[in-house]
């Protein structure tokens, strides 16, 4: 199967999608929620700041978005490369 170029292209695209999703995943939690919070402290959200919101709620909402995006994108990619379940 490693000789089939379409499978290699499929996997390379998958790795690219996963990588970008994980960059966003890390950015909203470790980034906005913890390490970059001081940079967001000027943006007020209901009695605290944007970093606090990301740490307590925002990151969870973004996680949801990432997973549903990935499921949708991959199911489309499966079909494009003809590797979906029939």
């Amino acid at each position: 199967m490693s000789d089939k170029p379409e499978n290699n292209a499929y996997w390379a695209t998958n790795i690219k999608i996963v990588t970008w999703c994980l960059v966003i995943w890390a950015l909203v939690s470790f980034g906005f929620g913890i390490l970059l919070r001081p940079l967001l402290s000027g943006i007020a959200v209901g009695g605290s700041d944007l970093g606090f919101w990301f740490a307590q709620q925002g990151s969870i909402l973004v996680f949801l978005g990432i997973i549903f995006f990935y499921a949708w994108r991959m199911n489309k990619l499966d079909a494009e490369h003809g590797v979906d379940e029939q």
Binding site: V18, C21, L22, G33, F52, Q57, I60, I67, Y70, A71
Partner: peptide, 20 residues
């Protein structure tokens, strides 16, 4: 705030699970 770690940690794992 310091214990927001529980909130992010116990939900963020699902991203790893779903993608990897």
């Amino acid at each position: 705030y310091d214990n927001s770690t529980f909130l992010m940690g116990w939900t963020g794992g699902y991203v790893l699970l779903a993608l990897m």
